[in-house]
């Protein structure tokens, strides 16, 4: 891809979706658009750009979809995973000791990095979790993303963003140029297709829900409806993680922010102040 071609695609996606692509993201354009080009029998970037310039609707839509697919990475933002280990997990261990069991829902799991990160975190905590049963239900609307999630094979770029190398060594094996997640991690996760606008009752009840960086794509009434339905499935003493830029303020009074913990919410009326351990900065897996 020439610099001029990169610039064209960057300008195109900025106008189409407000997404800013800087030069160090050239690999992203390459890896995201190659499948579209292969599918459509488009020989090279020059040909693709000619069709974008001509405004071919199907091509414009597919390129926009490919480039705006919600970015995800292992241990995305890191902080929610620290909060999970330092606040949520101790609370679950203290309050679910009768059942010795808890369930987590990774809503809008995309290509699987979030549920796999949670599963690795829980496997790292196996000493504390001896005798406990946990289940992660991971859902996404997009069949293609879900298929990739189930497959559990990631590119070299994908396994490096956010993932501590010791975890890569413990939980992945090399497969050709890619990296495949090992079965013990995969076996803890139930991947299912689900539209967040649908009824989540068939997924069952959950102690923790991760629904990060997806509400931002919805208008306020839809946000309220999705949060209400998540609330129905979440234990009254459970936890909800939203994205760092997301809020419930002005959307619903069903959830309240856990004091001082950005992105961590509890059902309104739950016993607040779960476990007020000091949150010290600690990377996962060390």
């Amino acid at each position: 891809m020439t610099p001029a071609e990169f610039q064209f695609v960057a300008d195109f996606i900025y106008r189409a979706a407000g997404l800013v692509l800087t030069a160090d993201k050239a690999y992203l354009i390459d890896s995201r658009l190659k499948p579209v080009m292969r599918e459509r029998g488009i020989a090279g970037f020059a040909d693709l750009i000619a069709r974008l310039k001509a405004g071919t609707p199907a091509i414009v839509r597919e390129v926009t979809d490919a480039l705006t697919t919600n970015e995800t990475s292992f241990f995305r933002d890191l902080k929610p995973f620290d909060l999970f280990r330092q606040i949520v997990l101790p609370h679950l261990l203290a309050t679910r000791s009768a059942q010795h069991r808890f369930r987590i829902w990774s809503a809008a799991c995309s290509t699987g990095q979030e549920p796999y990160s949670l599963a690795m975190l829980l496997l790292e905590e196996r000493a504390r979790l001896a005798g406990w049963t946990w289940e992660i239900v991971a859902t996404d609307l997009c069949g293609e993303a879900l298929a990739k999630a189930k497959d559990g094979v990631y590119s070299q770029f994908e396994v490096q963003r956010g993932m501590p190398t010791p975890l890569l060594v413990r939980y992945f094996e090399k497969q050709g140029e890619g990296w495949r997640i090992k079965d013990p991690v995969r076996h803890g996760i139930d991947f299912r297709p689900f539209n967040l606008l649908g009824d989540p009752a068939p997924l069952g009840r959950f102690d923790v829900v991760f629904c990060r960086n997806v509400l931002i794509y919805f208008d306020p009434p839809t946000k309220a409806k999705v949060l209400q339905r998540i609330g129905q499935q979440l234990d009254g003493d459970g936890f909800l993680f939203l994205g760092g830029a997301e809020t419930v303020i002005g959307v619903t009074d069903r959830f309240v922010l856990e004091a001082g913990q950005r992105g961590l919410y509890r059902p309104a009326g739950s016993a607040s102040g779960a476990t007020t351990m000091p949150v010290c900065r600690a990377a996962v897996g060390r």
Partner: peptide
Amino acid sequence: YIMKPFDKDIVMSKFNLVGLVEEAT
């Protein structure tokens, strides 16, 4: 451990993991 090719995001992500930089957020 970073496998080349690398970019700023990967370096930042790894530096963040070992406590050399704070998350940009």
